[in-house]
Simulated assay, not measured.
Amino acid sequence: MFDGRDPPAPHRAAAAAPRPDKFAPPGCERDSEISDTLQILADPWRFLIIREAFFGAERFNEFAARLVIPRATLTKALTSLVGGGLLESVSLGSGGSWKRYVLTDSGRDLFPALLGLMWYGDKWLWEGIPPLALFHEPSRTWFSPLLVWEHDHSPLNPRTVRFETDPGYWRPRDEPATRSYRMDRERQARGLRPCSMERTLALVGDRWTFMIFQEFFHGNSRFDEFSRNLGIASNVLASRLENLVSHGFLEKQGDGGAYRLTPKGRDTYCPMVLLKTWGDRWLRRGRGTTSRFLSVNTGEETRAIVIVPATGEPVTPQEVRLVPLYLPEVSGETP
């Protein structure tokens, strides 16, 4: 996957060849683990509910108080997350009206992807000391997450892998997704927790925006290419592109309808491929994946992971303590 710039010399011939993942056949869309994951996590609220679950929230009122979310919106989001298998609803007492919402195995496995969003927000959207520190209990070290390819622990760079697809990669286009909204409170805290992940979601957290970024990493950069592959309404596409240009993710190239990723935009690749790792594991069970990453140098299949620098081992939520570096305003939480 290249990002629109000239490829390294040894790979120019391959890059010049037609890419089977570039243009969707008529009436088709990508059989994409990223897109399908984003269909479950269709709006920023669902990401933030999962985040609060990692901070120990379980009860409806805990989520409502910490996020300052409308109760009807919270009810709908919790129902969707339970239906998507990320949370389990556990009844308290014989009456069944009181419930706990606990992370399932698949919900806990989203932890690396959330760290990827946090990493991005810390790097590009936060000034000064980030609001959240990570402590690895087994090694007794503070750490910043390393986002790497599994086969050699090199940084997540699209130039060091190639994207391979199977013949069944394209599927008939689904009905248009339920409309989703950005947070529309750019760079402001939603609820009571300062959070760089939230700042990322406030700017790019709706499904359409993530899918536009995905198209760049498949070699597309023009308005008509996005429209063809995504089946997105022209006014919605124009709005999303305008938002990405105004916040420095994209640069418009002349008057030909082409765009280019800035360094800030290219780094969105990292949390996105972590979403693919999750989707490969939890959404493709029993039917296999239709695409994969292969090392340019060795041809070895690989995937995106997050590791702890001190150990080189993949990060797990059970071994990491999330330590707020801000005043403990969130109800019931201590630093």
Rank of each mutant, 00 (worst) to 15 (best):
residue 245 V to H: 07
residue 251 E to R: 12
residue 235 N to V: 11
residue 248 G to C: 06
residue 232 I to N: 00
residue 245 V to R: 12
residue 252 K to W: 01
residue 228 R to I: 07
residue 252 K to E: 15
residue 250 L to Y: 07
residue 231 G to Q: 02
residue 232 I to K: 04
residue 247 H to D: 10
residue 237 L to Q: 13
residue 235 N to P: 03
residue 242 E to W: 06
residue 235 N to F: 13
residue 259 Y to R: 11
residue 247 H to L: 10
residue 245 V to S: 06
residue 244 L to C: 05
residue 252 K to M: 09
residue 250 L to D: 11
residue 253 Q to I: 10
residue 248 G to M: 05
residue 257 G to Y: 02
residue 249 F to M: 12
residue 253 Q to L: 11
residue 232 I to V: 13
residue 228 R to E: 14
residue 227 S to T: 08
residue 243 N to H: 09
residue 235 N to T: 13
residue 260 R to K: 14
residue 247 H to E: 11
residue 242 E to K: 14
residue 248 G to H: 03
residue 241 L to F: 04
residue 258 A to N: 09
residue 244 L to F: 04
residue 230 L to E: 03
residue 247 H to F: 13
residue 252 K to R: 15
residue 227 S to F: 10
residue 234 S to T: 10
residue 241 L to Q: 05
residue 249 F to W: 10
residue 247 H to N: 14
residue 259 Y to S: 09
residue 227 S to I: 00
residue 261 L to G: 10
residue 256 G to F: 05
residue 256 G to E: 14
residue 260 R to H: 06
residue 243 N to L: 11
residue 254 G to C: 04
residue 238 A to N: 03
residue 240 R to I: 01
residue 242 E to D: 15
residue 234 S to K: 14
residue 232 I to M: 12
residue 258 A to F: 02
residue 260 R to V: 00
residue 261 L to Y: 11
residue 255 D to T: 12
residue 253 Q to A: 10
residue 241 L to M: 08
residue 253 Q to G: 00
residue 236 V to T: 15
residue 240 R to E: 08
residue 238 A to P: 00
residue 239 S to P: 00
residue 244 L to M: 15
residue 228 R to M: 09
residue 242 E to V: 02
residue 256 G to W: 02
residue 240 R to M: 04
residue 236 V to P: 01
residue 227 S to G: 06
residue 228 R to T: 13
residue 246 S to T: 07
residue 242 E to M: 06
residue 235 N to Q: 13
residue 236 V to C: 05
residue 260 R to I: 00
residue 228 R to K: 15
residue 254 G to W: 02
residue 234 S to C: 05
residue 235 N to M: 05
residue 227 S to W: 08
residue 245 V to Q: 05
residue 250 L to G: 12
residue 246 S to N: 13
residue 237 L to T: 09
residue 249 F to T: 09
residue 246 S to G: 03
residue 232 I to W: 02
residue 244 L to N: 06
residue 240 R to C: 10
residue 234 S to V: 08
residue 250 L to K: 10
residue 229 N to W: 08
residue 253 Q to W: 01
residue 258 A to T: 07
residue 259 Y to T: 07
residue 246 S to A: 14
residue 260 R to T: 01
residue 255 D to A: 11
residue 229 N to H: 11
residue 247 H to K: 11
residue 251 E to I: 01
residue 242 E to R: 12
residue 249 F to R: 07
residue 244 L to W: 07
residue 260 R to G: 04
residue 234 S to L: 03
residue 233 A to H: 12
residue 240 R to S: 08
residue 233 A to R: 14
residue 255 D to S: 12
residue 253 Q to Y: 01
residue 230 L to D: 03
residue 228 R to H: 15
residue 246 S to R: 12
residue 229 N to I: 06
residue 243 N to S: 14
residue 256 G to T: 11
residue 252 K to A: 10
residue 243 N to K: 14
residue 234 S to P: 07
residue 237 L to F: 11
residue 239 S to M: 02
residue 255 D to P: 00
residue 261 L to C: 13
residue 230 L to K: 02
residue 230 L to H: 03
residue 251 E to K: 12
residue 238 A to W: 00
residue 229 N to V: 09
residue 244 L to H: 04
residue 246 S to W: 00
residue 227 S to N: 10
residue 248 G to Y: 03
residue 229 N to T: 08
residue 246 S to C: 06
residue 242 E to C: 05
residue 233 A to N: 11
